[in-house]
C-alpha cells in the first residue's frame, strides 16, 4: 500500500468534506460533496475493494449527488436565507473527533499493517451475494423498491 497515495487521498477527501460541510453556497457544497466521495472511492481502491469503490462512485456521484443538486434547484427560492451557522455543533464535532482519535490511538492492537490477500474479484462478491447473502439481497431489493415508491408518493402533487 502506497503511503504517498494515502496522504494525497486523505488530504483531498478531508478537504473536500470540510468544504462540503462549511461552504456558504449550497451548489458549491454539493460539488465538494461529490469530490469527497471520489476521495472515499479512491480509499476503497487503495484498500483493494475496487468493486465497492466503483459502486460508491456510481451511486453517490451518479445518483445521490445529482439528486442533491436537483433538490437544491427545486427549493431554490429559499437558499438566499441560509446564513445561520451553529457553533455548538463545531464544539461537539471536535470533541467527538478528539475522543475517537484518543481511543483509536490508545488501542495498540490497531497499529497493524495490511496482510497480503487474494484479490477480491467481482466473481467472489457475486457468489457471496447469491449464496450466503441472498436473503439480505432480496430484502435490500424490497427496501429500495419501497424507498422508490415512498419518494414518489412524497413528492407527488397533493390533490386538492
Amino acid at each position: 500500500m502506497n503511503g504517498a497515495a494515502f496522504i494525497v487521498i486523505s488530504i483531498l477527501t478531508l478537504a473536500a468534506a470540510l468544504a462540503a460541510a462549511t461552504l456558504r453556497k449550497l451548489m458549491h457544497a454539493a460539488l465538494s460533496f461529490a469530490v469527497a466521495f471520489v476521495g472515499i472511492a479512491a480509499f476503497f481502491f487503495l484498500l483493494g475493494a475496487e468493486f465497492v469503490g466503483l459502486a460508491l462512485v456510481f451511486i453517490y456521484i451518479g445518483a445521490v449527488a445529482v439528486l442533491i443538486v436537483f433538490t437544491i434547484l427545486l427549493t431554490r427560492r429559499d437558499i438566499e436565507k441560509d446564513r445561520g451557522f451553529n457553533w455548538s455543533g463545531v464544539i461537539i464535532a471536535v470533541a467527538l473527533f478528539c475522543g475517537l482519535t484518543w481511543s483509536i490511538l490508545k488501542t495498540p492492537s490497531l497499529s497493524i499493517v495490511a496482510p497480503h490477500i487474494r484479490a477480491l474479484t467481482v466473481k467472489r462478491i457475486g457468489e457471496a451475494l447469491m449464496t450466503s447473502y441472498v436473503w439480505p439481497l432480496q430484502c435490500i431489493g424490497l427496501l429500495l423498491t419501497a424507498a422508490l415508491i415512498g419518494a414518489l408518493v412524497l413528492v407527488m402533487e397533493e390533490k386538492r
Partner: peptide, 20 residues
C-alpha cells in the same frame, strides 16, 4: 432535529468518556 442529533452525539461522547 438538530438538537436531537446533537443530543445523540453528546451521548456518544459520554460513552467515550465512560470508556476512558
Amino acid at each position: 432535529i438538530q438538537t436531537y442529533l446533537a443530543a445523540l452525539a453528546v451521548g456518544m461522547l459520554a460513552l467515550l468518556l465512560l470508556y476512558a
